[in-house]
Simulated scan of single mutants.
Amino acid sequence: MDTLIKKSSTNTENTMTSLTGDIPFYKPLGKEEEVFKHAYGCRIPVLLKGPTGTGKTRFVGYVAHKLNRPLITISCHEETSSTDLIGRFIIKGAETIWMDGPLTKAVKIGAILYLDEIAEARPDVIVAIHSLTDHRKELYLDKLGETIKAHKDFMLVASFNPGYQKGFKELKPSTRQRFVALSFNYPSPKDEAEILVNETQLEMSVAKKLVGIANRIRNLTELGLTETVSTRLLVDAAKLIHSGLPKRLAVRVAVVEPLTDDLEITESLADLCDLMI
């Protein structure tokens, strides 16, 4: 029997965000929403730069909801290849079926595609998206010998942590200059405390103490921590405290322990947090 070749869309339920329900909470800290909307209107890709846990992913979900566009998120890592994004042939029974990858699907339906930590992906991923980040706005499917013009509502967004493994995994200038870039950083103490209260319904007085702890640790640059206290870690601690876990224990397991495996530094940070909470 001759092998049949059919096209079929891949299942992207794990990466596509539904826009039903309430809009995700996000507190604008500058002009990032205004810039993003203008970039979307001009179909210019956007690069979000900043440390881990500063709200980059939440921001993308927030603006996708505001723009009423489906959001497909890809968490990039060292094994992420262009085939994973574009698609592949699979054998299904007696048929060879083409499965669209999340990038191809986003291009076809006009979704916002978010490449989280794009610097972690393999170089062939960067090559694959280049034609979508300039005037061409098209995607070449080499295995099919086809070129797809991007839907008019398609938008490419990527995130990048400049401080992570600096000098080892960097974005090339030829890639960076294809994006409008927005910098994210930790909120001011007042804004960060408000975020904790909105996210967890924690008492403002306790939220302020958590923010104080975070800022104290962030200033301890001599510890040589790879990453410092993110707003995400504070939200986790706030949730645990609000659920009834003792404050000191919540801060230790949600803030201190994730930062380092060095026992001496862990104990020093735990003592500091115990005094401040």
Rank of each mutant, 00 (worst) to 15 (best):
D116G: 03
M99N: 09
A119Q: 15
A94N: 15
A106L: 09
I112W: 00
A111P: 02
D100M: 03
T104D: 01
L103H: 04
P102Q: 04
G101P: 04
E117N: 14
G93C: 11
I112R: 00
K92I: 10
T104S: 05
K108S: 12
G110L: 09
E120F: 01
L115E: 02
W98H: 11
I118V: 15
D116T: 00
K92N: 12
P102I: 05
V107T: 09
L113N: 07
T96E: 09
L115N: 06
A106E: 09
I109K: 13
W98L: 10
I118N: 02
L115S: 07
A119M: 13
T104Y: 03
K92F: 03
I118K: 05
E120G: 00
E120R: 09
V107R: 09
M99G: 01
I91V: 15
I118L: 15
L103M: 11
A111Q: 07
M99V: 04
A106R: 12
V107K: 05
T96M: 12
Y114M: 13
K108Y: 05
I118Y: 03
I90V: 15
I109M: 14
K108W: 03
K92G: 06
K108M: 12
A94C: 07
G110E: 04
I118D: 03
E95C: 14
V107S: 07
I97L: 08
V107L: 07
K108P: 06
G101H: 07
L103R: 04
E117F: 14
E120K: 11
Y114Q: 12
I97Y: 05
W98E: 05
L113I: 14
Y114V: 03
E117D: 15
A94T: 15
W98Y: 14
I118P: 04
I90W: 02
G110N: 05
A94V: 08
I91R: 15
K105D: 01
Y114A: 09
Y114E: 09
E120S: 08
K92Y: 05
I90S: 12
K105M: 01
I118W: 06
M99C: 04
